[in-house]
Amino acid sequence: MPERLSTSLEYGVESLLDHGVMKFPKAGLLATSESRSWNGIAAELRAHPAGEIPDICAQQTEITFAVHGSAGGSVQRRGNGQLQITPSRTGTIWLCPSGIQEDHIRITENIPEVLHVYLPPSQLDIRSESTSHRPEFGEAFYRAGLEDEFVRQICLRIVAELREETSGGALLMEHLAMALTAHLFDLSDRASRSAPRSPETGALDRRRLRRVCDYIETHWDSELSIADLASVACLSRYHFSRAFTAATGETPGRYIGRRRLEHAAELLRRTDISLTDIAALCCFSSQTAFAKAFRRRFQQTPGAFRRRVRA
């Protein structure tokens, strides 16, 4: 198990995962996004033993989700003088905004699987593209036992991506980071204001959509980001993701993942390029991850697909 983790993410964040190393020195690391090239978000899946967790002041927003909780245990934590005691059962959600000083965290029973999602402060810059000021989470957003199905489903999707990498996973995670940030601000707004915020709507027009799709077809074998695609569409990152999904019925990550696998199938049909090289072209971190994603898409392994189409 690694002693030290580091990652390089966009938006000026160099070591989101170092937070987990410092905060959870005794927790077992089950999975990490360290080598996944995710932008604007990082995640870890950990096994937490009962005991105390060191004092720390968060430098990024942390969302914690009990994937597999404990039956009768609880988490006791105190941030900026606010004490919270929450059952650590499966599905429990904790929020900790950046700048909160936690001087007491105690886990009363072992928690087998806990997801930690980290959003850097600069993720707020994306949200500020659609507002007149740079928003921030306040101390009141230090919450435990949050009941929110949207956050829960995003956490479950992140867990699934950590456990089994997909072709468009990096793009999907970037999209989810923005959706999660926007949703958390909506929660914060509703807590402080009675008037709900009107959602933004509108799909990409045909001309912009064609331009973006053409760009994806030209660069499908390169690392793509939401920022790249938004620039092609001449939109902000925040508005682009919504508009693209409205126009295609797929998130940018899912669309790119599908097209990469379709290109992979064409390479298997028409060339002798090795499976390892095709996996790399499709931006997978390993041939195993590529084979799993390909099988989900085509119901057979890349090798079996190549043999069948050439028979």
Rank of each mutant, 00 (worst) to 15 (best):
Y255R: 04
R307K: 13
D189F: 14
E266H: 15
I226M: 09
E266S: 13
D103G: 06
A160D: 13
R78G: 00
I53C: 02
A203D: 01
A170W: 01
L235R: 08
E149K: 07
I273A: 04
S74G: 11
D125Q: 10
E200F: 10
R295E: 15
A179R: 11
I278M: 01
S33V: 07
R211W: 07
R197H: 06
I93R: 09
T181H: 08
V232H: 07
Q76A: 09
D103K: 05
H19W: 14
V212C: 11
C155Q: 12
T61V: 12
R259Y: 03
E161M: 14
G51K: 05
V232P: 04
R78W: 03
L224G: 01
G138M: 08
I226T: 07
V232I: 15
A291G: 12
M173F: 00
R163N: 14
D186R: 11
V75K: 02
S122Q: 09
S130D: 14
R207Y: 06
N110P: 12
R269Q: 08
F24E: 00
R4C: 03
Q101I: 09
Q60A: 14
F65D: 00
H133Y: 08
F305I: 00
L119N: 10
V13R: 10
E102G: 04
L172V: 12
H116V: 15
E3Q: 11
T218S: 10
S198H: 10
R106A: 15
R206L: 09
A58I: 05
S198L: 13
R295G: 04
T108Y: 05
R260C: 02
S236W: 05
T166G: 12
W38M: 05
